[in-house]
Each structure stands twice: as structure tokens, then as C-alpha cells.
Design a protein around this nucleic acid. Structure first.
Lengths: 127, 127
DNA sequence: CAGTATCCATTTTGATACTG
DNA sequence: CAGTATCAAAATGGATACTG
């Protein structure tokens, strides 16, 4: 274990009366929102996330996916048996993060010149 | 030094073509957006931030304020001399983070029952 | 491929003490 | 009050190796 998801489930579920604090307890770290971004861009398999330009380490990715599942933002579905393999999809709770990502993207576009447009796929158009 | 602002100025100014990555390089950590939230709630002095319920450590706060200033989201103005003391205010670039905080707040209100409303003060009504 | 596990270096934090 | 300094502990990160 990398001091991973299990060790910090308490952090995920910690409760404050501030909605921002609660949100950040779940996704306020360096990697989680990038994984969410990838999910919104239509990525759903391990290798998809690994191949993103930010170069997330495999152990960190595994940890974040577990945590996101524990927090109910992501669910996984087996797409093959023997060996069983999963793909990851946003739940409604996870999909509701879209306005946040869009707001971040808009800020980045305005204040960090030369950045691209963020075009989340409509998950209900997928598959 | 705590491996503080100076040591990571490169992280703040690191550039990606993804606007989300760029944004998160600046404010995608555990504490920065909470300081921003406080600023939007009208807090502007050291003791104000320290008194927030999340209990930020004084060294972390000092580091984040420096970083935010280096990134151009916050500026500080002396409100007294001998000893000189500063209060911190959001720049326009910092104030543009408001839609992000509002989106996070909306998500938190929806998915973390029992949380309060986030009511940023209009900074142009201040003083 | 899709993970899991491990090792180890670097970062980040948290607590506390100290200064003008 | 408004910070700065120090330091140990914890978290995080990156590289790499291993498994079915």
C-alpha cells in the first residue's frame, strides 16, 4: 500500500458545514480532478489515464480510482472476464462535477494564454 | 523555509496546453482554494485566515499567500507602518476564480447534505 | 493489457516555539 | 498581531518489477 485509499477514507468522508471544504476533501488534490477531466473527455481505461500528458504514476492512479469509487463519483464495470478488466465511468454525482471543470477551464483559457478548449463528451451519447 | 513558495515557483508557472492543468498547478492543492474562499468572504488579514475552522498552520498560510501573490491572484497593501502590516485582496485574476468556487459550492450543497450557502461579498462594495 | 506491490526520495503537513 | 523558523511525521511521487 502507498498509504492509499484505505488509509485516507476518513479524509474523503470528513464533514464540514462548508460545502467547499467538503468538496475539496474529496477532489482537492493534485490528481483527482485530472482523472475526472479524462473521464469527461471520454477516457475510461487504465491505459487511457496513464497516457495523459501529465504522466500520473500507476500507483497514484490506482489509488485515485479507488478513492473516487469509494466517494461514489465513479463506478466501474467489467468489460471482460478472465482476467476481469474494468472500465471506469462517472456516476451522476461525478458527472455533476462538470460545471466545476468548465469553470476551471474557462479561467485557464482566460489567464493562461495558449491553452486549448475543454470539450467534455456527453456521457449519455457514449456507447 | 518549508520548501515554500520560492522552491516551487516553477510549479506555479509551469505551462501545459490544458487550461485545467494550468489552473490546478496554481490552486489545485489542499489549502489554496480555502484561502481564496476566505478572501471572497471578506477576510483579509492574517488572523482572519488563521481563525477559519479548517485550522491552517501559520507557516502554510504564509506560504500560500506568497504563492498567490507570486501568481498574481492576490495583492497586499500595508494598512499600518511600524511594524508594517498587510492586508490581502484579490486581484481581478483572483476574483475571476469566483465561478469556480461557486460551482464547487453548488456541488457540495447538492451532494454533501447539511452544508451552508457560500455567499461571497462583492469586493467592489468593500471599503 | 490492467493492475498490484515495493522501495526510496522528495514534498507537504502539523505542531510548536520564537520575534518585533 | 503578523509573521518566521525549525523539525519530525506523514503523504506523495517516480521508478521499477511482478502477475495473470
Amino acid at each position: 500500500m502507498t498509504g492509499g485509499a484505505e488509509a485516507r477514507d476518513d479524509a474523503i468522508f470528513k464533514r464540514s458545514s462548508c460545502p467547499i471544504t467538503n468538496g475539496l476533501n474529496i477532489f482537492g488534490d493534485k490528481w483527482t480532478l485530472l482523472v475526472i477531466r479524462d473521464l469527461m473527455l471520454g477516457k475510461c481505461r487504465y491505459a487511457d489515464f496513464i497516457s495523459s500528458p501529465e504522466n500520473i504514476a500507476s500507483n497514484i492512479l490506482a489509488d485515485r480510482l479507488k478513492r473516487l469509487e469509494a466517494a461514489g463519483l465513479v463506478s466501474r464495470q467489467a468489460y471482460q472476464q478472465k482476467p476481469v478488466r474494468y472500465e471506469y465511468v462517472l456516476t451522476e454525482k461525478g458527472n455533476d462535477l462538470k460545471p466545476i471543470l468548465e469553470a476551471i477551464s474557462r479561467w485557464g483559457r482566460r489567464h493562461c494564454p495558449g491553452t486549448d478548449v475543454f470539450r467534455p463528451v456527453d456521457r449519455f451519447k457514449l456507447r
